[in-house]
Design a protein around this nucleic acid. Structure first.
Lengths: 197, 197
DNA sequence: GGCCTAATGCAATATCTTTGCTTTAAGCTG
DNA sequence: CAGCTTAAAGCAAAGATATTGCATTAGGCC
């Protein structure tokens, strides 16, 4: 996004919404590489120059749309224990981000060279979720978790595998990460399915 | 790049070299966002259509050039012990990749949506270096190291921090990762500067 | 040395991007 | 709530980039 909007409501907001919707619709219909600004503008019912002026270029529009799409709609599931919450969250994260769609979104978010806001937003979503799990655990009287450590041990490897050796991380791989996290946090036992090495 | 070259030597190779050189030269002179294909072609003394035909588009050319640039020129330093080798390698990796130039290269490599060869190449470089360290350690009679674990614990977090919360990982942060790795591998002691928490 | 063909050059065309100016509509003020 | 102000959108022309068919060049191979 070129700049934070000055005028929040009204036509501006409607157009932003329309352009986002058009972008997402097109991403579902044609290949990621076939899309261009005039196409999106046309679908959204605006002129291309509007898009160029507000977003700068295709990369920034895609990054903005992707970050928007990655915004969580709800708090992570509450399974009753931190170990369970963490497992559920990480498994879902790996699945969502590892899917072809998720991988493309991640790439779009990272491709924005102009103002790395989109990447920071996504990072913040993850941090926020982990903080929620931590707060919940403390409220239950459980030992807490270090968000930074969770990112280092659980999230970062998943992202690395997705981005560099692309392909969805296997459930076994994710289980291995969870086991390692448990080994480093004896207060947080390994939750249910420890059927891996 | 668009396809692996059929003809390896001669003019083809010279042009590829010239285009790569022109791209790197321009990256050092003007901002990453100011560069375009005609500019590079001009500098390399070829017509734009040649570049388009061989690389497809700017993103792929940049990814190819970045991957080329990230190709290691030498084996990692031999410090006499696996712990020392690992520390030296990881610190250098964090420095190189975390610098503005390194970050830009990483992004270019990941931006290539067409054929994720560039990302895989970079990943392979890192893996190869870690395997070298491992081989060396075994030859010395030391305990070996798991390359996958080293990537999960050391490399992935560094990349995640660089990409998402951009900024060079601090030496303290890297030391923390190394300490964690040592904790998980009692056979590989923490090397020299353990002055962190 | 001469043929064959991949790869490049050239130039015309199509497409995308930028920009100045005009028009619209949101927000504010009296 | 009418009128003013101005951010944002529309429009259209100009500029730049991307694509493509055809001619030419230069490796590789008898």
């Amino acid at each position: 996004m070129a700049r934070e909007m000055i005028r929040q409501g009204g036509r501006s907001a409607r157009i932003q919404e329309a352009v986002h919707a058009a972008t997402q619709a097109l991403l579902n219909e044609v290949g990621r590489g076939e899309i261009n600004v005039p196409m999106i503008a046309d679908r959204a019912g605006v002129t291309p120059s509007t898009v160029y002026r507000r977003w700068g270029d295709l990369a920034q529009l895609l990054a903005d749309t992707a970050a928007e799409r990655l915004r969580p709609v709800a708090d992570p599931d509450d399974t009753g224990s931190l170990a369970g919450d963490l497992r559920a969250f990480v498994q879902q994260y790996a699945e969502e981000m590892g899917s072809p769609v998720g991988r493309a979104l991640m790439r779009d978010v990272l491709a924005e060279t102009a103002s790395e806001h989109a990447a920071a937003r996504c990072c913040a979503y993850t941090t926020h979720h982990l903080q929620t799990l931590n707060r919940r655990a403390l409220a239950r009287g459980e030992a807490g978790l270090s968000v930074d450590e969770a990112i280092d041990i659980l999230i970062a490897p998943i992202c690395y595998r997705i981005l560099f050796s692309n392909g969805e991380p296997s459930p076994d791989y994710v289980n291995g990460l969870l086991a390692r996290f448990a080994r480093l946090n004896s207060a947080i036992p390994l939750s249910s399915p420890p059927h891996q090495a």
